[in-house]
Design a protein around this nucleic acid. Structure first.
Lengths: 138, 138
DNA sequence: CTTGATTATGCAACAATGTTGCAGCAAAGA
DNA sequence: TCTTTGCTGCAACATTGTTGCATAATCAAG
């Protein structure tokens, strides 16, 4: 897997550095979206600023996307394969569990077609769902 | 109008203070959502912490709601009349213009019914649209 | 109109997050 | 191995979020 991550980075024209490999690997192994605090907790000793820039770079390259969930914290999740540097395709829903505070991408749910006044040009649409997830229900 | 704002505050069981009147008045006169920085710029000399608490209070009482727009900044807008302390009804879309960075509520657009896996209990749903608004198109 | 109970304000202080500049170091290809 | 290019980590600072506390203002009762 070490090799896979390396290849992945290379395919995005990014250098394989320890930080990037760790962060990317963490995203691959995690099923929910991750905030900076989460990542810093998982990867001890990681530099705050380097992480900030790593996430920014990954986002620009289309490796990860922001998972806006209304929690006020910026979270990120792996993009689906159609994302690229030039176009993000994160038009799926994000579900935020208010109990465990985890956010997951729901790739199966895409944002329905919306009827908009002509005055507005829509470039992207996102759907935020919140409630309680399976694990948090009794 | 001075009187109207006062009455409005009273109807929410809030004391009429200069700060609250100013902030509420600003919301009434503004057609788009406002972030803390916007408000501080408009109302010079306003105390940062007081503003923070004022917004929190207004939100709790159902006077304003957060307009999440993916910009990373928390913005607020007036609630429609159906909101109360106990239930927010901000299930309309928010449109974020990436050029002028203004966010507007689109009360006419409600979030469509979504088909969700049984595992999840949805408590609320929000729709974020972004692109360019009328003014920012040439 | 005064007064007293209650609530709001503003300051201090701190945490978390976002952001840039820069010097030194590491990666990738020649 | 060397050189170029890009990444890292530190310093430094801005913005936002948040709580405690003493003082001041509001509002209703008298």
């Amino acid at each position: 897997m070490e090799v896979a991550v390396k290849k992945l980075l290379k395919s995005y024209h990014l250098r394989s550095t320890p930080v990037r490999k760790q962060v990317l690997d963490l995203f691959i192994q995690t099923s929910h979206a991750l905030g900076k605090a989460n990542i810093e907790a998982e990867l001890d000793e990681i530099d705050r600023i380097t992480l900030y820039r790593t996430l920014r770079t990954f986002e620009q390259k289309g490796i990860i996307h922001q998972a806006i969930d209304g929690s006020g914290k910026t979270k990120y999740a792996l993009c689906s394969h159609e994302c690229s540097e030039h176009e993000h395709h994160d038009h799926h829903a994000h579900f935020y569990c208010t109990r465990c505070e985890k956010t997951v991408c729901m790739n199966s749910i895409t944002v329905p077609k919306i009827d908009i006044p002509d005055d507005f040009q829509i470039a992207s649409a996102q759907l935020i769902l919140s409630g309680t997830c399976k694990n948090c229900q009794r």
